[in-house]
């Protein structure tokens, strides 16, 4: 009985350690593109386009 409890405790601890490791290693480099609020996306796109146009107009050399 005690051994079973110990095993269960150890497994639980291992599980939480693995979960913590997963969280830390995480950050898959990909955009889930799960649009819940398109307003921010459109604002961002407008800003990016304006920045690109300004840089093009100003010209930029290495």
């Amino acid at each position: 009985m005690q051994l079973e409890m110990f095993q269960r405790g150890a497994l639980k601890m291992l599980d939480s350690k693995l979960e913590s490791l997963t969280v830390q290693v995480g950050a898959i480099a990909g955009n889930a593109n799960n649009a819940t609020n398109l307003n921010y996306v459109i604002i961002g796109l407008v800003v990016v386009i304006i920045v690109l146009i300004i840089i093009t107009l100003l010209g930029n050399k290495k």
Binding site: A32, N33, N34, T36, N37, Y40, V41, G44, V48
Partner: peptide
């Protein structure tokens, strides 16, 4: 650009 668009689809 990349950082912003990884959060732009949810609440900022």
């Amino acid at each position: 650009f990349f950082g912003y668009f990884n959060i732009a689809f949810s609440k900022i």
